[in-house]
């Protein structure tokens, strides 16, 4: 532990406005630095590999058919109850597969728990995509069924 020093202004600094001028020098130096602004949406932000965007479904070439086995784990762990899964017998092989999969983005808090618990191999069937543009004109558009969950979200490119 130590007590922090409280600086005082010396008289000559006070008279000649030294510290004010130093402060102005700092802002002046910043004038010539590169701006940190990202010109979104013309410029897309750089997305880090672990970024948790909106959850989506995926398949894997190693597994025939739909990867999701309708085990309901994700819908149980989801703290906001935004996932509904209904299963049907698998078209190829044994077990179940998802017949209906509805994800309500309106309530999703992007916590990533669903991806964490998904038991499918080699990749989780539900995964946190890198898509982050969630705005819709209608609330109902935020309810996504299986078809929409497989599609990548269309992004509009803007000219710089």
């Amino acid at each position: 532990m130590s007590v922090v020093q409280r600086p005082e202004l010396s008289l000559w600094k006070r008279l000649f406005l030294v510290e004010l001028l130093q402060g102005m020098a700092v802002t002046f130096r910043h004038w010539w630095r590169k701006p940190t602004t990202e010109q979104y949406p013309k410029e897309r932000p750089k997305i880090l590999p672990r970024f948790r965007g909106i959850p989506k479904l995926q398949d894997h070439p190693d597994v025939e058919g739909i990867l999701c086995i309708a085990c309901n784990q994700c819908s149980i762990i989801c703290p906001d109850d935004c996932i509904t899964v209904l299963g049907e017998p698998r078209t190829v092989g044994k077990g179940k597969q998802a017949k209906v999969f509805i994800l309500d983005y309106e309530r999703c808090c992007l916590c990533g728990l669903c991806e964490e618990v998904c038991p499918t191999t080699p990749v989780p069937a539900i995964f946190m995509s890198h898509e982050y543009e969630l705005a819709r004109y209608k609330r109902v558009d935020l309810m996504n069924d299986m078809k929409e969950l497989y599609e990548p979200q269309p992004t509009k490119e803007y000219l710089k």
């Binding site: 004038w31 701006p35 602004t37």
Partner: peptide, 13 residues
């Protein structure tokens, strides 16, 4: 613009 430059921003673009 000027204040934006001094604050490492870009201002109206």
């Amino acid at each position: 613009k000027l204040i934006a430059f001094m604050q490492v921003r870009m201002g109206p673009m």
